[in-house]
Amino acid sequence: MGSEFVQLSLTPILIGVLASIACALPGNFLILRRQALIGDAISHVVLPGIVVAFLITGTVASVPMMLGAAGAAIIAVILIEAIKRLGRIEPGAAMGVVFTSMFAGGVLLLEQSDTSNVHLDVEHALMGNLESLIWFAAEDWSSLVDPAALAALPAELPRIAVVCALVAVLTYLFWRPLKISTFDEGFARSMGIPTTFISIGLVIAAAVAAVAAFDAVGSIIVIAMFICPPAAARLMTNQLEVQLVWSVVFAVLSAVLGYVFAGYGPLWFGGENAVSAAGMIATVSGIILGLACLFGPQRKRIGEAAGL
């Protein structure tokens, strides 16, 4: 298990875990603010941003792609707001118009441009390439302290680690205003908390997490992790602090179990090939949410009986 595990599975699992946590943390607040589908919208509009960045730079380098994705996310937010205000359209429909149109534009650009020699296609954007993020330089566990091997880690790992840490630090720093403005915006404003700034900041943090995670693990995991672990956590407790801890636990559990099931599950049933890790991680997070819906101690709305 040792050397093979370190080389093939350690980095994908770590990347999966970090990406899941980075998405689940802001997801807690998005769910409470009824903005859960922002993750869905962002992960769709990221595609045209990435394609445009590729067309401009001609490479699949990460930095321009992240910039392109972020740019597309910002354009999408502006468009959604504009349609909402100008047409007095409800937010869900405005979102639906913008993200589907931009996604269609991205697909068309992709088909029109010559991307046959680079690894850029719609399936990749959806599913990510978690399995391919292998640590070639690793020999066994001792490589963890070997600087030469560490230098050859897949670039996605440090990047998602930084973003995950950033999201965690921001959540910690803005904990009080975030919490207050999420539960009672009017009260928060009366206390002098800049609620607009907080809510825009939250969306930006979510977008950054989504783009970084998208780069490594594809959009399915991003959408699933924004919603499933926090939603399951919400059914476990009435305390935001505890909910956050649960959501991180569920996110880690989904990532690890999902990866293991995808990689080794088919072997247990006599199959030969692994299935999509991204899809399996989303599936596991869904099973966890399903269990929470059936058995979570706080699954009912307040005022309804919690029992059967």
Binding site: A36, G279, L289
Partner: peptide
């Protein structure tokens, strides 16, 4: 459950789609 409809939509779409990809 106490989850709002948009959370339910997001959960169903991502989980079903993920399982479909599997």
């Amino acid at each position: 459950t106490r989850l709002s409809e948009d959370a339910a939509i997001g959960a169903v779409l991502s989980v079903f789609f993920g399982f479909g990809i599997v």
